[in-house]
Write a protein that binds this DNA or RNA. Sequence first.
DNA 1: CCAGCCCCCTGTCGGC
DNA 2: TGCCGACAGGGGGCTG
Length: 270
Amino acid sequence: MPELPEVETIRRGLEGYILGRRILEVEVLWPRTVRGMSPEEFRARLAGQRIEALGRRGKHLVIHLASGEGLIIHLMMSGRLLVEEGSVSPGKYDRVLFHLEGDLTLRFRDVRKFGWMTVVEDAEEFLTHLGPEPLGEDFTAEVLRELLNGRKGQLKPLLLNQHFLAGVGNLYADEALFLAGLHPCRRSDSLNGEEIARLWQGIRSALEAGIEDRGSSFTSYRDARGRRGSHQEHLAVYARRGQPCPRCGAPIARMVVGGRGTHFCPCCQQ
DNA sequence: CCAGCCCCCTGTCGGC
DNA sequence: TGCCGACAGGGGGCTG
């Protein structure tokens, strides 16, 4: 389940291998992975292009090409982007293979086929519907206060809403709410100034800790070289139902909020 | 704006 | 042991 820290770890890992290289050929093995155009057009628009920069917006990876176009990739739940030396043969779960100059292959492996990619003329414009970058300089506690104003829903589903804030998924939403000491079901417009500041800090700290540990690997997530992250070993509440809260020792609870499994400390989070 | 539902997929797990 | 249904999860789309 790649969220912002996992996608950022992949982005950093890919940079060293594919930056400045040309895409020689693209093999689309599962056509529905390519959105907005035919696999043939996708191949034609990418073949021969040099990779100028690697960016990230929320959970989207943005590969900037020499033409000015952007290759947008969303890993969804089970997508992996793996760099390998040599020409590889397609595996059972491979959906797209990018053959790069320098005898490298970028492999998009995606068991559940939810991941997608497309080429757009203007990546920034394509992604304008996303909320602010939670680790960006523009995202201050004051901005969060303004965004929360008038929101009547529960906090947890709001944090998962990518139009509200980009990059937070189920795992980091639970961790951020724990760090902030806020109950996942709190009404979003019920927070006072001090609680908003705690939520802002909780979101930032949860994501930064995830990046520091190179992401959380439960089953599917791997970095660009196939390595696991270690943040799953340092989580306070996510996937820790019944285990003692690291702050007060009470057993961590799990409930469904907004259709998502939600982990929290019933004692510390109000 | 918000809640709830379905759909997209497939590996995994619990129950029988 | 083997079958089967439930479940997980990000996000888009739809309805109320």
